[in-house]
Every structure is written in structure tokens, then in C-alpha cells.
Amino acid sequence: MSAARIIARDRRDLLGEGPLWSARENALYWVDILGRRINRLSLDDDAVVSFEQPDHAAWIIERAAGGFVAGIGLDLVRLDLPANRREVIGSVDAGIRGNRLNDAKADMAGRVWFGSVPITCDRPTGSFHRLDPDGAITRVDGPYSIANGPAIDPDGRFLLHTDTALDTIFRFDIREDGTLGKRQPFIRFEAGWGHPDGMTFDADGGLWVACWGAGCVTRFTPGGKRDRSITLPASQITSCTFAGPDLDRLFVTSAAVDVDEPAGGALFEVDPGCRGRPTQMYRD
């Protein structure tokens, strides 16, 4: 396709985020954090349904055992859809008023890496956490003002994580026991690039980053060099993922909060000219 396709549906997301490709359902899931919804797009017929949640719907990841694990408010829950039943695994940031969860990815070992942020995104009360298959939750780094966009190296050697407020994507080596090495700056965004948000790797090791405020997704080479961008008709681009049986379709989320844009909050599809990597699941 030569331009972005807007997925037809009856609503826009206040803060669309966290797109997840489900090969077993041939469907794309994503969240509207502020709208407190989890959305599902069927790639069989383009039908979109959504599931209301009791608090901020931060992310959703498939469980290998079936169903999902999700971040709702500050709770990590096992989630059964379409019944929309929730079972709490645990919570984070006890005693920190005004925080919520934000952005997550599973790795090849079946762990989930996720952030927390202040709802106002204006103070460093957020952290970076790990959920292990046995249900243990560990704070692994912090503080963060806007913890965002984890991406896991396809070989499981390192992960990337962002503090959007610092315009920096950080790199951490992943040790065999799941602990992290020292945080190292990997990509510092320059003026005019927007602000780094959600991200994902392609099959060649390139990193695709949603650029909040710049209306695009940008690919960086495995070495961190800015490669190319795809422009979208909305300014607040939030995350992206590869989908479809051949993982050659790139879906991109956006936000409508605080902007007056016809396509703000839309879900887009673009042709990335490459393929992605299979989605990893939580193994509890």
C-alpha cells in the first residue's frame, strides 16, 4: 500500500497503545489506556470489538496456557476474553498515588517486562518491572517519568527501554538469571524527530519506533542509526507491531488526547517493506 490505511471503526482512541499480534486468533489486540478499553481487530473480516476495563488498560500479552495477562491500573491480571474475567496476579508501586502501568513486552523466556508512570507524566515516580512465569514481580530499574516502549532483542541478549521525557532509548544486557546489566544510552532523539514511544524489532534487527509529536514511525539500524521514516496523518504516534501470517503488515496506534485531528486516535496500517518477528507469550 502506498499510504496509511485507517482501520474503519466507530470510535477513536484517547491513548491507543500496546498493539499485540495474535497468530493463534489471526487478530490484532491493542489498548486505549485513557479510554479504559482493550480492542480487537480480526484480520479475517476487519471486524473490531472492544472490552471495557475497570481502570487504565495499559497493555495486553498472550499467555502460552491460553488467554492473556494484562496491565490494568496498577494490577497485573490474568484476563479471559471475550468473557472479560480478571484474576489479579499482583500489583506494583504500592503507596505511590497517581501512578499507572504503561507498555510491556514478553521475552523468549516467557517473562514480561513493563513500566509504570505517573498519570500526569510530569514527575519521576515510575519504574521498570519484570513479571516472571512463577508470578513474582520485581522492580528492575527506575525512576522514570514516562517509562515506555520495551523491545526485546530477537536473540534475547538485551532489551531496549525508553524514558520518553528524556528523549532517550536505553539498552540493558539481559543476564541468564533475568537480571539486567547497566543501563546504557542507545539512541538519543534529536530535535525534529519527535519523542520515542512504543517500538518493535523487524526480522533484520532494525528497530521501529513510534515518534510522538512527529507523526511518523522511524526505523533505526541495528547499530542505532536513523534509517527511514513513514509519515502518518496524526501527530501523536504511540506504538507499532508487525502482524499477519507473514508478519509483513505494520499496524500503528495513535492518540487523540489534547489534539484536534481527524485521524488522531486512529489505528493505522502501513507497508513496512520488511517482516517482523513472532510474538512472544507469557509462560505461567
Rank of each mutant, 00 (worst) to 15 (best):
A234V: 13
A4F: 14
T125E: 13
W30L: 08
A58W: 03
M108S: 14
A136M: 04
P222V: 09
A23L: 04
L207H: 04
R24N: 10
L76I: 15
G110A: 11
T241F: 08
G273F: 06
C211N: 15
A203W: 00
S254L: 08
F172T: 03
L207F: 06
G244F: 00
D134E: 08
G264M: 09
T179Y: 03
W21R: 10
L250E: 05
R9F: 04
D44E: 13
L101T: 13
A151Y: 05
M1F: 10
R277E: 12
F51D: 07
K225R: 14
Q53M: 15
D155T: 13
D103F: 13
A210E: 05
R12Q: 14
S239Q: 09
E269N: 11
D167N: 15
R9M: 15
D153H: 13
I33V: 15
H195R: 14
F268Q: 03
W208F: 13
I60V: 15
R11L: 08
S229K: 10
I119F: 10
V259F: 15
L131Y: 14
T218E: 07
S2C: 03
W208D: 03
Q184N: 04
V270R: 07
P222G: 10
D167M: 09
I137D: 06
F268A: 05
V270C: 07
G66L: 05
I61S: 06
L15P: 04
F51H: 12
F220W: 09
L74H: 06
W208C: 05
F51N: 07
G192E: 04
P272Q: 02
A109C: 13
N99D: 07
T200D: 05
F220Q: 01
P124I: 01
H161S: 00
S235L: 10
R277T: 14
F186A: 01
V117L: 15
R123P: 04
G264P: 14
T221K: 08
P118C: 06
A23Y: 12
G178L: 07
